[in-house]
Structures are given as structure tokens and as C-alpha cells.
Write a protein that binds this DNA or RNA. Sequence first.
DNA 1: AACGCCGCTGTAAGCGTTTACACAAGTTTG
DNA 2: CAAACTTGTGTAAACGCTTACAGCGGCGTT
Lengths: 348, 348
Amino acid sequence: MKGATLKDVAREADVSIASASRAINGLDNVAEEVRRRVLEAAGKLRYVPHGGARSLVMARTNTIGVLLPDIYGEFFSEIIRGVDVAARARGLHLLVSGSHGDINEAVAAVRAMGGRVDGLLVMSPFVDSQDLAAVLPLNLPLVTIASRIGRVEQGSISIDNFGGAMTAVKHLVDQGCRTLAHISGPASNFEAQERRRGFLEAAERALPGAICPMFEGDFTEESGYRGAKAFLNACAQAGEPMPQGIFVANDMMAVGCLLALREAGKSVPDEVALVGFDDIPISRFVSPPLSTLRVGVFDLGRRGLELLVDAMERDSLSDGEDRESGEGVIVSPELVFRDSSRRRPAPT
Amino acid sequence: MKGATLKDVAREADVSIASASRAINGLDNVAEEVRRRVLEAAGKLRYVPHGGARSLVMARTNTIGVLLPDIYGEFFSEIIRGVDVAARARGLHLLVSGSHGDINEAVAAVRAMGGRVDGLLVMSPFVDSQDLAAVLPLNLPLVTIASRIGRVEQGSISIDNFGGAMTAVKHLVDQGCRTLAHISGPASNFEAQERRRGFLEAAERALPGAICPMFEGDFTEESGYRGAKAFLNACAQAGEPMPQGIFVANDMMAVGCLLALREAGKSVPDEVALVGFDDIPISRFVSPPLSTLRVGVFDLGRRGLELLVDAMERDSLSDGEDRESGEGVIVSPELVFRDSSRRRPAPT
DNA sequence: AACGCCGCTGTAAGCGTTTACACAAGTTTG
DNA sequence: CAAACTTGTGTAAACGCTTACAGCGGCGTT
């Protein structure tokens, strides 16, 4: 009942445990006859090697730990996919964990991964991530994704949120919007901060002195809906028209925003143009289709893992020498121009 | 550089390795003074326990392995979320792996998980899953999700695909559709088979003798698009009208189908009514919103994990005695009536 | 015939933990 | 004041595996 061990297999095949190990691992210094007997015994006993024991002695797990703020949603699941594909290509396995925004959970997760993984892929966009950094076992190769953890010595890959936001604003202005608004992500989120900063900077540059209403959401569809409502109410009360263009800090909120505008009878993009961020799959399907800034989320995951693998290899070769090489890959989002911001046939 | 071990901590704190272990694990038979010293040393050395070693001696990993056909997409990511939430609540970690439809990959993944997990949550909807069953280490608790693996002794949780398909067809007929068609999933997929069977059975019952065109897709948006095109072409060639109702075996394909119909200028639902399956998030947002059969995918994952945990506990208590209890939970999908199938104000 | 080699096999030492057990104090007890 | 606990600590075995090393035949060379 207890799961056969190598010793059991060895006894069954009537060889030493060393030979059994060799036979099973396909080493070549084993007589054919012995190998046959061992494999047969292993099959009969349904032997499955004990990964824990193996990694203990080999000091290698072939597993990498992935720590995400959350494990689901279009965005994260796409990251995981990227990581998974790249990992699979290298025969690595994934130990995933969601920290659910709680830094203590993240710390617990990291501890639990200790000794079970060869490297860590961490995404923790919370501004106070320093606490996390303090806990990370410093002997493990680590790559951060779109995070703001101090450890520059190791690799990191991030998104040009600031630049993306500026692109979005410029695009709205190009489309003829003369009044702008912004629905931001939570202030505790690093990426949200950057996008907000990009919005303000670009808005000030294009429309100097203009006052742009802002609403702080939390990246959920529902908060986007609330944001749009807030703008609608404020404008109705002040007797002002709606802003001509709204830059929403992520697509999920933009979708909520769209729903609220539609409900209020505002036409998108003619009365209000909308640009989101991320290009999640849904964005193509809402109507009107959502203009957005495409972040190669899949690639983010894939390249993150590749960076990590590089770091691991470097790590195992040179034993702790030249570990500077602060590889800071930054990917730039790309504007996807769809109908939600297509204002005039020929913007003069 | 090599990552501090318990021995290092013990030396640093000038106690025995046993005391160090006790202090760190919070056992109570440790002098306060010693505990303090040990914890301090651990902090200083950035000690992180080696999970592999720990699980080796404790015969417990607090990790459960999750094997899915794929790791991404709305459907699977929602399952993972359910599993993750339930696992987190019990302090368990997740070792996930996508088999990418390849049975050999699945086998490899299972082997790699051996000795690293306390239980296995497997979803493998391929009809020939018997091969997989043969490999599964028989000492591990196992729960299958929407699969067709022989091992009934262990728990399983599945979807009533047949019943759901019948509901869909009945609904289309209620809406006044007198000619029906079906876009199915791949024949190698167990769930697709069941949905197809339900479609045929219900169609035959409601419209005896009617011939229903069918198209075999592969669950991707693109194949749904192709399916609709195929119907359009066939009807154009034969000079017949389009089927009044199409039951599409999953929402992703239904979305593709919708796009093709819109492109062809067919109005949905007036000319062709559409019902999908799964209720993925996108379905609410396409226009018209897609009628579908909601499967509590999140719950599928959550309950699957709970089932597994139950099995694990039963397993550890009674040492291999009453291990029948083939818990076969079956969840029934529920019709979500949206505009894509809303045909007449008052269906006579 | 003695020698070195080669191919195969077994013995045993670890890998980093936990934990049963023994042991040395100090603290009641009778 | 010795016996009996209590409390804290250390020693060492075990978990399942890999692998360096030694051993042992049989082979081809001098």
C-alpha cells in the first residue's frame, strides 16, 4: 500500500539497489539482463521514483516556482501559459502559487517553495514589495515580472507602463479628443501608478493646463463601471459634457466602463472615446471593439522563464562570481486601434 | 552561497541541530533563550527549510498535483482558480502541469510528480485515457475531473454533458427552431462525444426523422468560424435556408460561429439561433450575448480538490481498508438564456 | 604466468530533515 | 535525602535516492 521504493524493486529483481537505480535511470553500465529484470520489477510494483529524495541528493528539482498576485483572470492565466510553454520546452515543472495580494501569503508561499524549486519567477506589483524581497532566499535564482523589487542583481522583465499610457493619451488626442479623463488602478499597485503618471504627463503635454477628472478603480470590471458612473454623475451635476476621451488603466475596467456608458445612452466612440490597456481576449469581442495597448502577456511569461533559466545556468557554472548582469528587459506595449476610439474619418 | 542548512543555523546559534529544528518548527519544548538564538541565526543566514528533505522524512508534502489538458484558456484557468482557492484554504500547494493533449506528456508529468505530491487531481478528457490510468501510481489518492478514467475506486467529479446538450436542444425547439445543426468538439474528446450524443438524442426526440447537419470542430474559436462557414456554403449550394438553431459544443466555438454569421449577414437570433456550452466570461460580452449552458467551472475545481482532500484523509486514517466509496459527483449545467437564442416575443 | 584492463556489481556515504530515545540537570515528592 | 518526575538538550537513525569507490571475475597483453 505504501508505494514501492527502489529497495523493493531491487529485492524483487534480485539485484542491489545501486544496480536498480542505474537500470532505471538508463545508465549504460548495466548488463542487459539486469536491466530487463529491474524494469520488469518496477513495472510490476508500479514503482514511481520519489522526487523529493531524488532532488535532495541531486540538488536539483527541475521545478521552478511561480508566484503571482493571482492565479486566474485573463491576464495571469496568459502569463502562466507563457511560462508553461517555455518550461515544458526545457523539461521543467511549475509550482504555482497565488499570493492573493497578501504579502504574508506571498512570504509563506516562498518558504513553502524552499528546497522544492530551482528558481523563482515572481510577480508582485505591490508597491511595498520590499518586504517580499527581504524574505526571498538569496541563493535562488530569481526573475521578477513587472514588479518593483529591489534585487536588481537578478533578472527582471517589465512593461513600459508609463510609455504605454503616453501612447494611449497621444492617440486619444490624435483622434480629436480635447478633454480627457482617467480611470486608474489601485494606488497600491506599481503598474497602476506608472500608467497614471504616464497619463498625467502626456495630458499635460498635449493639453497644457487642462484639468482631467480621475477615478481610482481596482482593475475589476465592476470598478470600471463605477468609474464611468462617477464621471456621468459629476458631469450631469456640473452641467458639463462628458470627457471626450477616457484612458482606462486596464481592459477589464474598460469593459465595465463601456457597459455603463452604453447604459447611459452615451455613444462610444462618438461622444466618448475609450482606450484600455493589456489587450485581453475579451477586448476584441465587446462592441465597439476596444482600443487598447497590447502587452505581449504570453511573451512576458515566456521570456521571464527564459531569463530565469539563463540565470540558473549562469549560476551553476560560475559559482557566485559575476552575478551582477542586472538584465532589465523592458517590453513596450503596442497600440491596438479598434473602434472604441475611432472618432472621425479624417482627423484634421 | 549554497543556501544555509539547518546544520549551519545550529552551529551559528551554538545548539544542536535537533534543538534548532524544534525551535524553528515552533515546538514548545524549547527554552525561550534557545529559540531566540536560533530564530536570530536563521534570520541572519536567510535560512529556508529544504522542502524536499522535509517531505522525505515526514512522508507528506502538503502539495497536490494538478494535471490538465492545458493550463490556459478561460475554461482551464477557471478550474485552476477553483482548485487554488480550495487548496489555499487548506494550506496546500499546487504543482500544475499541462499535458497538451499528449498522453505521453501526461505520463511524464505524473512520473515527475511522484513523491512530490500527496494527491493527484487529473483532468484528461481524451477517450483513450486508459493508458494514463495504467501509469498512475496506485498509492496516491486521485480525483478525476470530467474524465473517463477507469479507476472508479477513487473519487471523480464530472459534468452532465449529455443532459446539458439535451437541455440546449429543447431550449432551441422551445424558441421555435424547427431545423437544427450542431458544431461538435473533437471526436477524441469524451465530453464532446457526450454533448454530441445529447444533441442527437434530443433532436430525434423533438423532431423525429429530421436530418441535422453536423460539423466537427476542435473547441477553438477558429474552428467554430469554419463550422459556420461550412453550413453557410452547404446551404447556399443546396439552395436551402440555414438551420434555425445551432447548438455549438462550447462557447469559444460559438463565438467564432457568431462572427462568421455576422460576416455573412445572417441575423442572430432571428435567422439562426445559437446556444453554446460552458458560459465562459466572453459569452456575456459578444453581441448578441450568447445563450449557453453554465457549468460551474470554478466549483468543478473547488469541489474536485475537496473530494481529493477527503480521499487523502480517509486514506491516511484507515490504512487501505474501505477504499471503495466511488464518489461520483455529477454536476448539471444550467441554461443561461441570453439574446443569441431569444427568437419570438411569445413562442406559441 | 603475472599483469593490467574492462565491464559489471555491491557497499556505503551522504543529501537536509524530523523524531524516538537517552541523558543531564533541576524540581518536586514521600 | 533518595526517589520520582520535569524540562531542556543532544545523539543517532531513518526517509528514498544517487554515486564514489572497491571488488570481482574474465579478457588480452607482455
